[in-house]
Simulated assay, not measured.
Amino acid sequence: MASSNGTKKVVIVGGGVAGSVLAKSLQDEAEVYVIDPKEYFEITWATLRCMVEPSFAERSVINHTEYAPKAHLITSTATRISETEVTTANGKAIPYDYVVIATGHDDRTALTKSERIGHYKNDQEKIKKANSILVVGGGPTGVELAAEITVDFPGKKVTLVHKGPRLLEFLGEKASNKALTWLKKKNVEVLLGESVTNLDSNSEGGVYKTTGEKSVTADCHFLCIGKPLASSWLKETILKDCLDNKGRLMVDANLRVKGHTNIFAIGDITDINEMKQGYLAQMHSGVVAKNITSLASGKEKLEAYKGGPEMAIVSLGRKEAVAQISGMAMSGWIPGKIKSGDMFVSKTRKTLGLNSK
């Protein structure tokens, strides 16, 4: 439903990596509504640095109004999509010409920037007070957090427990082994093929038990396991039959939800067979911005999403990293120089049209 001046209405559900770039791109072309429970966008690949250096969040946590001042921000969650409107938990019904689902993963966190930075200050204080720290989860979040702690606080005893047979299982074995070797050189104890059985009863630290009957003594712990996709709400909407068995939205080559001509999906919630990386989610946004602009102007030819290079970089503290690029693994200061110093914060801020410093 176009506005009174003929401008198309675009509703973006989710203000994360993909949704933020799309809102910034379309705010001059359409009447944009961003539905997000948070007042801010967070550069997610900088979160582990913020835990050891909370001031880093001043640049990586960005209010939606900073990068998309022309967009309408609805601080709530979407609860329903019909053929004509999106309904939110706070009772708003927003009519649309185009909808873009960009909800990513379910991440219950602070609602305001100041609250989010407060959480990081609490995390840093927790790390400072502890002599020994348990990190649960050996994916990119757990590996990066263990590395950040051991580099910034080298006197701490860090133990990482991972239920899988190797670290960073979304990468190849060479990259996994390089990360493991680096952590061990930094005196991080790594327990693979183990799960912690008594996390709830050890919220304040103590002796943690594993499924392999091992004991880990730690003053505190951080849970770094994958979060579920934020798609369960779609099961009661017109998109209920567009979800695959993993809860992802099935999309066509133009990133439209299959079976719909004016509903798109971008980011981690899509069923595209590729690494779920932030730079690829931003590429999704670029394609959908062009396609919505084309459709709004009456053009029938749309751009297809062609994917990007298979690349992932996992930081190992402030100067080093492990990377996998087109199947080749490397570690050390070269991949670290690409990511680990600034964590791509300047680059992301520039993408959003903000001061990169």
Rank of each mutant, 00 (worst) to 15 (best):
L111K: 10
L192D: 07
P154L: 11
N63V: 14
H221V: 03
K337V: 13
T75W: 14
C224F: 07
G259N: 04
K126V: 13
K319V: 09
Q124M: 14
N254M: 13
V32Q: 02
E310C: 13
C242H: 03
E42T: 06
K70N: 10
V86N: 00
N245A: 15
C224K: 01
E204T: 10
T181S: 13
I272R: 02
H72S: 14
K337Y: 09
K319G: 08
V216C: 01
L134D: 10
I117G: 02
T87P: 08
T88H: 00
C224E: 10
L192E: 06
P140F: 02
I35L: 06
T44H: 11
D36C: 08
L243P: 12
S201F: 11
T217A: 07
A175S: 10
S294E: 14
N291S: 12
K92L: 15
I266A: 08
A78Q: 04
A57D: 04
Q124A: 12
G336E: 15
S4W: 00
M328I: 07
W182G: 03
G137R: 02
V151R: 07
T47Q: 09
G15Q: 04
I338M: 04
D36K: 00
K299D: 09
E310H: 05
L180W: 01
Q282S: 13
K113I: 12
F344A: 14
T261G: 06
P165L: 10
L302G: 02
E31Y: 11
K339E: 15
K121V: 14
Q282W: 03
I12R: 00
M275H: 05
N262A: 05
K258G: 11
A253H: 10
V196G: 02
L111E: 13
V345P: 03
L160Q: 01
E125H: 03
V196L: 11
T293C: 05
I263R: 01
P69I: 13
G353T: 11
L167H: 01
I81W: 00
T7E: 14
V345Q: 04
K24G: 14
V135S: 03
L243E: 07
A23M: 10
A321F: 00
L73F: 02
I94G: 00
V196M: 05
K184A: 13
C242R: 02
E85C: 07
S203N: 13
L280I: 12
P95A: 08
A23P: 08
G139W: 14
K339R: 06
V143F: 02
K156A: 08
T181P: 15
T211D: 09
H284C: 15
N355F: 09
E83Q: 10
G298M: 06
Y98P: 00
N273T: 13
I127T: 01
R256F: 01
V188C: 02
D271A: 09
L180E: 07
H105V: 15
A218E: 03
K126D: 13
C224L: 10
G259K: 05
S201N: 13
